[in-house]
Write a protein that binds this DNA or RNA. Sequence first.
DNA 1: TAGTGGTCTAGACCACACC
DNA 2: GTGTGGTCTAGACCACTAC
Lengths: 253, 253
Amino acid sequence: MGTTQLEAVQEPKYWHLRTVLSEALDSEFSVGEILPNERDLAARFGVARATLRQALEQLELEGRLQRRRGVGTTVAPPRVGVAVGTRRHAWPGAADAAWQPVDSTRATPPPAVAEALGTGRDEPVHTVRRSRVSQDQPVAAELLYVPASSVPGLTTSDAPSGEAGARAVLRELRRLTLARQESAVELGSARTEEARELDRLPGAPVLVVTTRYATESATAALSVATYRADTCRLTFGDAGDVEFHEGAAAGAR
Amino acid sequence: MGTTQLEAVQEPKYWHLRTVLSEALDSEFSVGEILPNERDLAARFGVARATLRQALEQLELEGRLQRRRGVGTTVAPPRVGVAVGTRRHAWPGAADAAWQPVDSTRATPPPAVAEALGTGRDEPVHTVRRSRVSQDQPVAAELLYVPASSVPGLTTSDAPSGEAGARAVLRELRRLTLARQESAVELGSARTEEARELDRLPGAPVLVVTTRYATESATAALSVATYRADTCRLTFGDAGDVEFHEGAAAGAR
DNA sequence: TAGTGGTCTAGACCACACC
DNA sequence: GTGTGGTCTAGACCACTAC
């Protein structure tokens, strides 16, 4: 990282700095390596710490850096590909070791959920929480909404709170025949609780995947899964779990 | 927006401010309405302008606000759903009015592209630029890489630069039989040129969709499409263009 | 206790849109 | 011009980690 001064340019300093740092990461650092601290870096480039931080934020958003308070800034490994949609229809959790049931509750849902499910506002809904881990790191937190009418086999006593209840709901759900499955991906920011589950700070960028699972006659479940945007690349396609074109997006623009 | 003071809390001010503003947007503002300017808002909440801006940035990231230099901050409309993957296989641009060809060049590609295509580093590749418009607003910019070997019917004279050349490449591509199609979605930041195309500033958050189109024997094309993350919700699924569960993600967490 | 990144302040000036 | 959001500075203090 030989550069010590920024020449005068028309583009913002933080943007130029991002480029310089990005090239330095490519050529002079390896994954996991610790960068100099922010005060040193700012001094080295002759900018205020806030400006330097703007550049680091960009690089963190792009998955190039990882910053941890009290520890330092390290070079991030390439994003992990996580399969979120295959062309085979499959109920959530069907033979899926990636997701870990956490707990389950039964209550009337938020209005937005009731509307999306197409159920009455007063109909009880099971809310199953699951978490997804990849390479020893939490990558996603999910809320799965299942109308009680989708799983009529479950009596209240069959569905205790906790992990056992969650497994019971998933088991009953698999008795239905899945006809359609639709997803949407959008950018969001981590709520306080999600941030804790994902080991990030509140407001961290996340990819929100909303999936509607439907039988021939009705919406059987709605999943809202929140993925860490810094560490994840979401994959959709024929191949399922197969990794492909690692890093293509980074170098192809 | 009656709140004038922030009580002492443990959570960061900008995060609390985000929540307060978010609720105010829900209850007291309608789409397109202009907010007070940043200096006024900061004074009203008794914080520095930088802190207020942190809160506004979050809300812009979530697609709630739209800020334009020299104009002001307005309440954003709900994100538009853009279909990026149906379960039907389809070549890019096949009967697709959403994408507008811009131009085309023929050259040796960046190494990352050659690697993803599985071609030799020296093999020429057509690079087709396309842009996608939705509701009179640019939503995506695409680079479509097509190895010259995928479109052998194209002689150099058949593929002039410019829009006509782009159309020629797409036409030839449709002669092949598509066997597989895989996509990945990740968060990125807009490069200078993409930012201009998308009417944003450099570094604006974007959703990068990388798609590999394959015949039985080889990768026929690679698409890297950059979508505005603030205004877009990417949809995948059986239904194709059909809108579904509008706003579910927003209210379901 | 020392060192890190995270938050916050109070200013200044710039680039851009609109009148 | 006038007013807007965008950039940048030079500080201060806080929260967290690791020794």
